[in-house]
């Protein structure tokens, strides 16, 4: 066997392994899809079957009807509204703060950075009660504000992420920019931002998914049925101790994945087809 064909064999088996593994990774989605097409009484009794005996599309109809007179259309609207705002807020505030921590040597920066890291380490479970008290005082209960406004302060996770990416950008750029008479804001907007697009898109995608999936904050802060987000609505479709329309539940779970996947598929190329290389050359 020549060296070349050996290499080719290596590549081929690698591809096979990678694709084989991908099937393992996608199995859950297939299972979910199949369950969403089973009759409710079959979801558990026929759980091991990947192809339903009958395709029961009615699940999507009955699930989408929602409850208390509100269809899932409204819940999707609510979710989109909360999520888009949160993403925009998080991206703006996190990028700004990250730039300061990564590139500006201002007095107190280490202290504030340490504070930020500390806020990441405290389990949020013990903050629930005082946070609710706070929002209650602000008269924000049963509005979307508690879900949106804090995002405009950025998120520690994302700030840290962006800091790490910015620190990977050669510092010479700053210097040459300064020589060109480029001010801080201009440098931030015109040079730094385009260079860390992958990290910014990562931030946006993560924030989108996490906000979309979060049901605990909506559970606490949204009271009326017409305010419910998709994740909250789905959560209230199931109770292990009560009768559940599992078929409809799975159908709505599938639908709720659609925007998340769409966002990921649409934006992943900005993450992985980074522009830093071409940018640096230009």
């Amino acid at each position: 066997m020549s060296a070349i064909s050996k290499k080719r064999w290596g590549n081929l088996s690698l591809s096979a392994a990678v694709w084989g593994f991908a099937i393992v990774m996608i199995y859950p989605l297939l299972w979910l899809l199949s369950s969403s097409l089973k009759h409710t009484t079959e979801v558990y009794s026929q759980a091991h079957k990947l192809i339903p005996a009958h395709f029961y599309w009615e699940n999507y109809v009955s699930g989408f009807k929602g409850f208390a007179g509100h269809s899932f259309f409204l819940f999707f609207q609510n979710s989109l509204y909360v999520t888009i705002f949160s993403v925009v807020g998080t991206v703006i505030a996190s990028t700004m703060a990250a730039y300061a921590f990564a590139r500006i040597r201002f007095p107190g920066s280490t202290f504030w950075f340490a504070c930020m890291m500390l806020t990441l380490m405290l389990p949020s479970e013990v903050l629930i009660i005082p946070q609710y008290m706070l929002f209650n005082k602000l008269n924000w209960i049963n509005t979307f504000w508690p879900l949106i406004v804090p995002s405009f302060a950025g998120g520690a996770f994302f700030i840290f992420l962006l800091v790490q990416f910015m620190r990977g950008i050669p510092v010479e750029l700053d210097e040459s920019a300064r020589i060109d008479g480029c001010g801080r804001i201009l440098f931030f907007a015109k040079i730094m931002l385009p260079l860390i697009v992958p990290a910014i898109v990562t931030t946006a995608v993560f924030k989108f998914i996490w906000t979309w999936d979060d049901y605990f904050a909506p559970l606490l802060y949204l009271n009326s049925a017409e305010m419910a987000t998709v994740s909250l609505a789905i959560k209230s479709m199931a109770d292990p101790t009560m009768e559940t329309d599992w078929g409809a539940l799975f159908a709505m779970s599938v639908l709720s994945l659609v925007p998340v996947m769409a966002v990921f598929i649409a934006f992943q190329r900005y993450i992985v087809e980074g522009i830093s290389t071409t940018g640096l050359k230009g």
Binding site: A93, M96, A97, I104, F106, T119, P130, F152, A153, G154
Partner: peptide
């Protein structure tokens, strides 16, 4: 000034939304 201007949104959020819950806990 530049530093604090850039971290201002985050800092404001820390003081308004996080500080009380953290110290309360």
């Amino acid at each position: 000034y530049a530093g604090y201007a850039f971290i201002f949104p985050w800092l404001l959020g820390l003081f308004v939304f996080s500080l009380f819950p953290i110290f309360f806990s």
